[in-house]
Design a protein around this nucleic acid. Structure first.
Lengths: 153, 153
DNA sequence: GACATATTGAAAATCTTTTTCATTAATAAT
DNA sequence: ATTATTAATGAAAAAGATTTTCAATATGTC
């Protein structure tokens, strides 16, 4: 299938090429979910992704959204973010990589650097405890500047 | 109601006193859940807590486990820990406080210090982004020494 | 364009967690 | 101790999120 969007987004292109490379089909439902994820500047819940992606593929089912999220996660093009309520959100790896700052009001996600500091934090702990640390998750939750004003107003 | 355990656990005692102070009743179901949480050295899922606490209170329902977990969380005697699969586990605050190191195999939780380092990590980020950081969550996931050997064996 | 089959959507199933509500039991008053 | 008050409980049902099943569909290949 040909691409369904006229204005090609380089991020989308890259993932499509990768899907193709691995032998996956470039279906309309997949492209619609991908497009939504790549044009978003924050993390989205499966339900939100479904709603938005329907604008590009009206027959899209929620199940396919889950399946696509799972596929894209495995390929590490998106990352799963844990929400306080126990559900999950997803954001493109670029945003979710490393650590993130999540606005509890607008759900905007900002990535921040600090990976170097992390290993200085983690290494001594690993040494002391004998743990083999395979992964770490740091999430800061708070209010972004815009939502702070909303609260004050 | 009188305490249901002969050997009193000081951690349990302290929470019971606090419950009493706040006007909550010291019921057998509550005491059984509390006992399980305070004698555990790791984090447990509601289902596991239910299974274990039934040994002390055979009529205990899962619903009451959830209600008690929610109450004890609010009182900050236990903390909720996010699991990779999206479910939650609970551990007494003593264990869960600050940051934790979770063994992905045996689910043991080890607390580690490093809170001081955290604010040196967080403060500059808050300054740069304008975010009001209200909470942070750092979880390290890996293999504890015992489970590392199990894998190698 | 036709074929083989990966992918899809809908419905049903799972699983965790919450809500509802009549019953039970802890506490305080007697 | 007995009784009254009402917080707390358990069972069942509801609510959500996510996964599985399966027949129908659409993609990439020949």
């Amino acid at each position: 299938m040909k691409k369904i969007f006229n204005m090609s987004n380089p991020k989308v292109e890259r993932v499509l090429a990768d899907l193709k490379r691995l032998g996956y089909r470039l279906t309309r439902p997949r492209q619609s979910v991908l497009q939504v994820l790549m044009e978003a500047d924050g993390c989205l819940r499966p339900e939100e992704i479904h709603a938005r992606a329907r604008r590009y593929c009206s027959t899209l089912g929620l199940v396919t959204v889950y399946r696509t999220l799972s596929l894209l996660s495995e390929m590490d093009h998106i990352r799963r973010v844990h929400r306080e309520d126990g559900c999950h959100s997803y954001a493109r790896t670029e945003l979710a990589h490393g650590h993130h700052l999540i606005c509890r009001d607008c759900h905007q996600v900002i990535e921040f650097p600090g990976l170097d500091n992390m290993s200085t934090l983690i290494d001594p702990i690993a040494r002391e405890t004998g743990f083999l640390v395979e992964d770490h998750m740091l999430e800061l939750v708070g209010l972004c500047p815009v939502c702070q004003e909303k609260v004050e107003a």
